[in-house]
Design a binder for these strands. Sequence first.
DNA 1: CCGTATCCTAAAAGATACTG
DNA 2: CAGTATCTTTTAGGATACGG
Lengths: 124, 124
Amino acid sequence: MILEGKHKAYKINDRVYHCGTDITMSYIGGKWKCVVLWYLRHGTLRFSELKRLIPDITEKMLSIQLKSLQEDGLITRLSFGKRAPFRVQYELTDFGLSLIPVIEVITNWGIELGNNKGEIIEVL
Amino acid sequence: MILEGKHKAYKINDRVYHCGTDITMSYIGGKWKCVVLWYLRHGTLRFSELKRLIPDITEKMLSIQLKSLQEDGLITRLSFGKRAPFRVQYELTDFGLSLIPVIEVITNWGIELGNNKGEIIEVL
DNA sequence: CCGTATCCTAAAAGATACTG
DNA sequence: CAGTATCTTTTAGGATACGG
């Protein structure tokens, strides 16, 4: 609905979006995607490294998010080894990298609010 | 999890957040909040104007979002008249206004993607 | 080590009807 | 005009166990 004209929309891969935020949110919405992308901003990380960096996420959710980010073309997956233990690396694509400035703005607003109105606490 | 140190978090109004995106998303996440805030960026709008600008939203969802945005301090509600038909105006607070640059970055990324990879279609 | 498979709950959203 | 009230569906997310 942010487009000029009342009855226009965007169609991308057979999905219809009514405004720019719809489009962006379909890529970074939900509880975990921003966090995963943000951690990948400086380079590749392994599955277990992401899990360690984001203790609250379950392996199932991490797996789902990584698969979704892959399908959206935001990250690549590289696996090494024929048998367990495997080594799997995740890395931002150029497309995924283009989202980092967006996420940076989002996170900065939140951090500023946290600093002004919140308190820093210790958690498990 | 974006904070330095593994076991720190922000607490705002008794809710715990693990990173800046968590905080911001709690204010603008979901399907409709960005859209409503974005439409209010230039001034006040009435309930029916918002409904007309966002045809896909149901009155119930619009009502819920407006109430939530109010409770979060992002918008104010001004009502006029003692009996129906009422006139109700919604307007961004300064706090709500501080989110507009964030939403602008989000929407711009989406629009650029729509222009590059999508097609503009006509919808009902 | 890097995931899947099930099962489950809770939250978000939609359809429709109605009201001061 | 500006909402509520119900009911239903959909989606996201979590707990736990297991597997190549």
